[in-house]
């Protein structure tokens, strides 16, 4: 019989054995619970809940995305604020570019209309956080984050960069104006 005089010493001989009944039960419970959580997070909450954000990711050349954003701004610009273009966005695709240390363009949206936000960065990783709603996405250079949104309430929403991007990070804001 294997005897151990200290828990710090390696046991001698062949000590490994198959799992006992209680261990098998706990293992089965853990696996079942993990599977249940996976199904809830992957399939159930995205379908029935409003908390979990459903988005797509695509690869893109940052310069191409910058050009697409410039074209979008040129087509729909209605003004500027602090040298940042303001755009009256028609329903459909909305281009939003994160760059140190601003989001452009500033967006005017209509309540109840559906928009597909196409968000990317030209330099470093930024965050896209809509305030006062609790809505957060990563903005990664080289990738487009596409998310479909339908503003339900009119008002002014701020976009805050919540991923540290450099010395002006705390000044990096955007704006979404939703009108009835």
């Amino acid at each position: 019989m294997t005897t151990r005089t200290s828990t710090l010493l390696a046991p001698q001989g062949r000590w490994w054995g198959p799992l006992g009944k209680d261990e098998r039960l706990w293992f089965a419970l853990v696996v079942a619970w993990a599977l249940a959580m996976y199904v809830m997070m992957q399939f159930v909450w995205p379908a029935v809940g409003e908390e979990q954000i459903v988005f797509d990711s695509y690869k893109v050349d940052p310069k191409v995305f910058q050009q697409l954003t410039d074209d979008y701004i040129a087509a729909h610009q209605t003004g500027t604020l602090l040298n940042i273009p303001i755009v009256d966005a028609p329903p459909g695709d909305v281009y939003l570019l994160g760059e140190r240390f601003r989001f452009r363009p500033l967006l005017n949206l209509k309540q109840g209309q559906t928009y597909r936000f196409l968000i990317s960065s030209v330099d470093v990783q930024h965050g896209f956080s809509v305030q006062p709603d609790n809505f957060n996405l990563q903005v990664v250079p080289g990738y487009v984050t596409a998310v479909t949104l339908t503003p339900k309430e009119a008002g002014t929403y701020q976009i805050v960069c919540n991923e540290y991007c450099g010395p002006g990070h705390h000044l990096m804001l955007g704006r979404i104006e939703v009108t009835p």
Partner: peptide
């Protein structure tokens, strides 16, 4: 249960 298995087959490979 582990102890019993270890005792019954002391010559089995590790």
């Amino acid at each position: 249960e582990r102890g019993e298995v270890a005792d019954e087959r002391p010559d089995d490979p590790i």
